[in-house]
Amino acid sequence: MKTTILIAEDQQHIRRLIEYKLTNSGYEVVAVEDGSQALATAKTLKPALILLDVMMPLMTGFEVLAALKQDAVTKQIPVLLVTAQSKEDEVLKGLEMGAEDYITKPFSPNELAARVHKALMRSTR
């Protein structure tokens, strides 16, 4: 069975790009466009990894992350945060809150795939 990854990103073109990249890398990808959907999907789908954009309407990535870490079902799922360019304090906040790793925009799709892969390796080990 393929590994499932959940993507939460509000910008359609970027969401599609990441989805395409990861699908090509051999993952099963589910993409949603806002925080509350991400949370709901994470609970039912129990993906192997979540890629979470920080700047999203309705519910920011941090709020989603906090909710994920409070829920016993989703607590174990590694989360990768996608943040705007080099905002150090945001990155630190995310890592403190239990994010596995972070990716800053602008990003390189190849690097993103590599990081996802690495994070998955770490969590299965």
């Binding site: 910008q11 073109h13 970027i14 790009l17 925009k105 602008p106 990003f107 390189s108 799709p109 190849n110």
Partner: peptide
């Protein structure tokens, strides 16, 4: 418009 939007968020060989 699509290209400009992509340019905003991409680096590396893709960019």
């Amino acid at each position: 418009q699509a290209m400009v939007d992509f340019a905003r968020d991409l680096t590396g060989e893709t960019a």
